[in-house]
Design a protein around this nucleic acid. Structure first.
Length: 562
RNA sequence: GGCCCUGUGGUGUAGCGGUUAACAUUCUGGCCUUUGGAGCCAGUGACAGCGGUUCGAAUCCGCUCAGGGCUGCCA
């Protein structure tokens, strides 16, 4: 099957094993997933969710869902709702541990006062551009602010004034007093609080100063008793600061561990870029099936299981890497192959008349729902004199490797009869209809005389067919790394053919029993799901991914060699 | 010309001083098949380089090279 990966632990689980061995946290394992509610979650976040919640499950520990909402100018309630939905949909449960950084604002303020009292934080009046200038550069040390040596008393009063709303945005900040000459820029008196007169989605107008990430994050972890604070590589240089704050405060001290975030080829993972595609109408909302957002993938037809398997199989490391999107597709196909029921649907219909089939007759034929899973049972599908087949399954003048229907050739119509094409009806160059005959002795698809056919094609009975609109999706970008092309806007590489809408599709009647988001396979075509925009008289179906298509590959190769 | 992190097939991972360097995916062949699906079999293909330690190095050490991150009152 190929889904059983060798038993080996990633470096994070090795660290946890070691901590358990040395009893560093009294046998506890407590992680957290800490999204900022400033956009929708994507597949990269799914990796983090699976890591954090997965570790908690494996070690019988706990994982908190915590919103890191320290910047009210970017955060919205809509995003917190979507994030909660996504985590639940992926199959994880935070139980009673839903937290917000903003729950701790009072406590954080008290800690800041403590640091001021210890002489390790001060209020700075320097304007932003000067603070930046004083910070120095990568290769030169910074300079001390002239306000750095204020008395503790004065700092206390000024901090209180900041909190009380006596300062305009940007007028003052609270800074940690560390060392302006340290090679790690993050340690050059980092800002702890800035003045921001903004309404917070949670605390409304209670605060007009908000904590910075570096100041807040370790405190959040400490307050919640987190043992392993797992974050992405770009925070590596922040770890000394994370440690410094907790050490100075002498509070419970979790361990920060950094791993490489996920990159996927032919798409983008930046929240900023995703927001742009959504806001500027390049896609139809955050849940557009072309987006790598969890909501988009859900709508596209990805199952939570397939995403979890994908996240597990890509592994966890410290090397920046890009996973082939083909691997993601492999993971969905692999999972849906086992779980999805099969149906028949025709995307580009070509009418077929079975000339020797009685005019008013119809039959119900038994079809297997899922050959990979006998317990999925069977269903009945109607057969009649007029059928639709896929236009691509007929060629009047076929190349030699084409096994499907051609003039004079006999093929099997799946689960029904052997059919021979006798006559092609054309309108100019367009093939509009096929006149065929069937062999009544081949009912069910077997010939009593043992003769074989080269191929089996799918079909739908015309009078019974349900009309459907099918959305075919392709990769969003034309190049593997649209975000990394220097000197170019990523939108230049948008794939114009990423969405193809087919309005004249014919599907078997059973499809009507399905509900939005239900996933299934159209035999020989791919995996699909019902779009939530489906209305009673208007069926909309999204294609998740095609089946592996060796015929398509042959055609492509011949085109290339021609 | 600073600091931090990282280099194993095309891609993603395993390897923890002795292995014919493993697995998955991709690609190429073949078998099988009432989905040109699935499944099965085979093949191509990697330890960044140079020194050192050692009987023995992908594994330990050093240097070089390469990639990534860091100069928001973003997270």
């Amino acid at each position: 099957m190929g889904t059983t990966e060798p038993e080996s632990k990633d470096f994070i689980r090795e660290i946890i094993d070691e901590d358990l061995h040395t009893n560093k946290y009294q046998g506890r394992v407590h992680t957290r997933f800490p999204p900022e509610p400033n956009g929708y979650l994507h597949i990269g976040h799914a990796k983090s969710i699976c890591l954090n919640f997965g570790i908690a499950e494996e070690y019988r520990g706990l994982c908190n869902l915590r919103f890191d909402d320290t910047n009210p100018t970017k955060e919205e309630q809509e995003y917190v709702e979507s994030i909660k939905n996504n985590v639940t949909w992926l199959g994880f449960n935070w139980e009673d541990r839903l937290f917000f950084a903003s729950d701790y604002f009072d406590q954080m303020y008290d800690y800041a006062v403590q640091l001021v009292k210890q002489g390790q934080a001060y209020v700075d009046d320097l304007p932003p551009d000067i603070i930046s200038e004083y910070r120095g550069t990568l290769t030169t040390p910074g300079k001390n602010s002239p306000y750095r040596e204020r008395s503790i008393e004065e700092n206390l009063q000024l901090l209180e004034a900041m909190k009380a709303g006596k300062c305009a945005d940007g007028e003052k900040v609270l800074r940690a007093k560390i060392d302006m000459a340290l090679p790690n820029l993050n340690m050059r008196d980092p800002i702890m609080y800035r003045v921001l007169h903004a309404t917070h989605h949670n605390t409304k107008d209670k605060w007009c100063i908000y904590p910075m990430y570096d100041w807040a994050h370790g405190l959040e972890d400490s307050i919640e008793g987190i043992t392993h604070s797992i974050c992405t590589l770009e925070f590596e240089n922040h770890r000394p600061l994370y440690d410094w704050f907790l050490d100075q405060l002498k509070v419970y001290h979790p361990q920060q561990i950094e791993f490489a975030r996920l990159n996927l080829s032919y798409t983008i993972m930046s929240k900023r870029m995703l927001l742009q595609l959504v806001n500027d109408g390049y896609v139809n909302g955050w849940d557009d099936p072309r987006l790598p957002t969890i909501s988009g993938m859900q709508r596209r037809g990805y199952s939570p299981e397939s995403i979890r398997t994908f996240c597990k199989r890509i592994g966890v490391g410290k090397v920046n890497s890009t996973v082939d999107y083909e691997f993601l597709e492999h993971c969905v196909r692999d999972e849906l192959n086992k779980s999805a029921s099969r149906y028949m649907g025709v995307l580009n219909p070509l009418k077929v008349i079975i000339t020797n089939y009685p005019d008013d007759q119809e039959e119900q034929l038994e079809a297997i729902n899922n050959p990979e899973n006998p317990s999925a049972g069977t269903r009945m599908i109607p057969f009649s004199k007029e059928l639709y087949i896929e236009h691509d399954d007929f060629m009047e003048d076929p190349p030699k490797k084409f096994f499907r229907l051609t003039p004079g050739r006999e093929v099997r119509f799946r689960y029904s009869y052997f059919i021979t094409c006798e006559k092609v009806i054309k309108n100019g160059a367009d093939i509009v209809e096929l006149h065929c005959t069937y062999d009544p002795d081949t009912k069910g698809g077997y010939a009593p005389d043992g003769r074989k056919v080269k191929s089996t094609i799918h079909w739908v009975s015309a009078p019974h067919a349900i009309d459907a609109e099918v959305h075919l999706y392709d990769r969003l970008f034309n190049i593997p790394d649209p975000a990394g092309k220097k000197g170019h806007d990523f939108k230049e590489f948008l794939n114009e053919q990423s969405l193809e809408i087919l309005k004249n599709c014919k599907v078997e009647p059973t499809i009507q029993t399905l509900k939005p988001f239900n996933r299934f396979q159209f035999e020989r075509l791919g995996y699909f799901c019902i779009d939530p925009d489906t209305k009673p008289k208007h069926l909309v179906i999204n294609r998740t991914v095609t089946l592996r298509d060796t015929w398509a590959k042959i055609i492509q190769q011949e085109k290339q060699s021609a």
